[in-house]
Design a protein around this nucleic acid. Structure first.
Lengths: 325, 325
DNA sequence: TTCAATATGTCAATCGTTTGACATAAAAGA
DNA sequence: TCTTTTATGTCAAACGATTGACATATTGAA
């Protein structure tokens, strides 16, 4: 691989000059600039970003830790994060924690070693204290870690409220909620909180089942939902805390010959792309994933540049009514 | 951030010694080793991987270029690639080309600048020649670029054959195929080729519609499929070249009151996780995504280590029969 | 006692780039 | 003509780690 020296030699100038054209600083005549460009072209020269990073002590790298990019919600989130990062010259190092505490910790260490400029945390199995000595620009999804660390979330309470209210309005007499893991101190728990409060407020019978940690044990999900519907055959409304979860519900209802929305109504959460392709198309609470992703990148950049930023970034949620309610 | 010098100072040894314990080379007494570890602990020291990369001229970075991680197939692929890369100490830089030629080129340049150890290409809008001066370990998904570059694909012809044969066996009289973009020189085109040959061989009427490049124009897909089914209302079997595409088909059939599988049978391709959650659950051709991802990482590593490797890596495909046929 | 193995230190180059300080020379403006 | 401005060069340190060559000192074993 050619270095800046090779370029300098070929262009008949010094490395200082090459560096000057590379970084647009100091005086450079057009003639020299052209010579240098030509030499770079000829050698197929690419400045070594590693050396640059080392020197300027900025890697232009953002670390992204999520449960897994293969989950549609996080996949879309990661896609947008990478999109907005790329727009401003940042690269994204994707880390799939699989909600494994050990991996999550390893990844944080790894990202620190690689001197990423910031970390976006969308996976939260670690204790709050563990973040204390991460003296990095950091942004959190759906979890409030400390006074200093900014977080991003959708308006979870409002989302839970919209979902629950819709079910009640549509005439449900007994509603169920499939929540995420409530042990983790996630802001998403407010969805469940809203569900509980609203159904109580309206005097509607309600039941909650909680999801285990291991996100992708398909048969386990099936069992759980099946069990729920068999134990409470009179459930006529379900608020699932994610669209993927709602997909399970829809399918099980199909096998149980419960017609949607006649016998049972379903509301999801997230509004991932494929939710509109379910049969029937899923009514869900839309999180503005793109805006949230953009915000995450901006929050990292602001911290890098030592600009002021908002700590609380709660995004409005929207009820997208399709055909499951 | 503390450096190796700070550690040396605190431990009362030289940087050479610290480096020796860090890299496990030369003689080191247990006592010194402990002192050094303690100093590292105390300072919360993380060796600077950027400096290391610069010196050893290996970044332990793999670049992954795909259309977008938010597409379920590529999301799952990316997830597994990251998983296997992480197992052996590699990190993954994810690049979403959005099938934009310019972005794809930019990303290749960027990855070269960042001196990634290898590139996994899953997005192919570029001309073959453009790859010529990528003198990197490289692996390709579903495209054969040159004599030297290894590629990975599923047994596309066999997949197309299995799908088409199944439709015919199940009694379809007029079958349709929704292909990807056939201009791109992808190996996936063999799915279409098999479809054409098999339906002709069995004397079955067939029709093909081709997908445009812009992957995610939802309404466009809908229009296309709707148009297809309206123009040919007697189609009773569809082979979609991806599960996502099949999801569109299923939904449109639902709206058109075509019952699946009674009136029309559908086969997808990929077997993404969510395909089993469709209603009805999708019959599809399974690509062994995990094995393919593992292979991609291994092929990069083998090239990095200058070990011999296979150029053609075609993975067997499996018919997963669910309820749409 | 002597030799080898073990343990650590010293020194400096290297990876590829940036940058500051300074020198020099040509071109341009007053 | 004299002074700026512009254009380039020279030199060397810095970023943070690795490594080879060599020196020295302490062990322990023969």
């Amino acid at each position: 691989m050619p270095t800046i020296k090779d370029v300098a030699r070929l262009a008949g100038v010094t490395v200082t000059t090459v560096s000057r054209v590379l970084n647009n600083r100091g005086y450079i005549s057009d003639a020299t600039r052209q010579k240098v460009y030509q030499a770079m072209e000829e050698l197929n020269y690419q400045p070594n970003e590693i050396a640059r990073s080392l020197h300027r002590r900025k890697s232009k790298l953002i670390g992204l830790i999520i449960p897994t990019v293969s989950h549609p919600f996080f996949g879309e989130l990661a896609g947008f994060i990478e999109y907005y990062a790329h727009l401003i010259g940042y690269k994204v190092l994707v880390c799939n924690s699989l909600l494994d505490r050990k991996k999550e910790k390893e990844y944080i260490e790894m990202l620190k070693s690689n001197r990423v400029d910031g970390i976006i945390m969308g996976s939260h199995t670690l204790e709050v204290e563990e973040y204390m000595n991460v003296n990095y620009p950091i942004v959190t999804f759906d979890r409030c870690i400390s006074e200093k660390i900014p977080y991003i979330s959708s308006d979870n309470y409002e989302g839970g409220k919209l979902a629950t209210t819709l079910l009640i309005q549509k005439g449900c007499k007994k509603v169920a909620h499939i929540s995420g893991n409530l042990q983790l101190q996630l802001l998403a728990n407010k969805r469940s909180q809203a569900f509980i409060e609203l159904s109580k407020e309206h005097g509607i019978e309600s039941v909650i089942v909680e999801t285990e940690l291991n996100v992708f044990d398909i048969t386990q999900y099936e069992m759980m939902i099946r069990h729920l519907l068999e134990k409470h055959p009179d459930i006529d409304g379900i608020f699932a805390s994610s669209d993927v979860m709602a997909a399970y519900v829809i399918q099980i209802c199909y096998f149980l010959n419960k017609r949607i929305p006649e016998h049972i109504k379903i509301v999801g959460y997230d509004d991932i792309k494929i939710a509109s392709l379910f049969v029937p198309p899923l009514t869900t609470i839309r999180q503005p994933i793109e805006e949230m992703a953009k915000c995450a990148v901006e929050l990292i950049v602001k911290q890098v540049n030592k600009e002021p930023f908002e700590r609380e970034n709660v995004f409005p949620v929207e009820l997208v009514e399709r055909l499951t309610t």
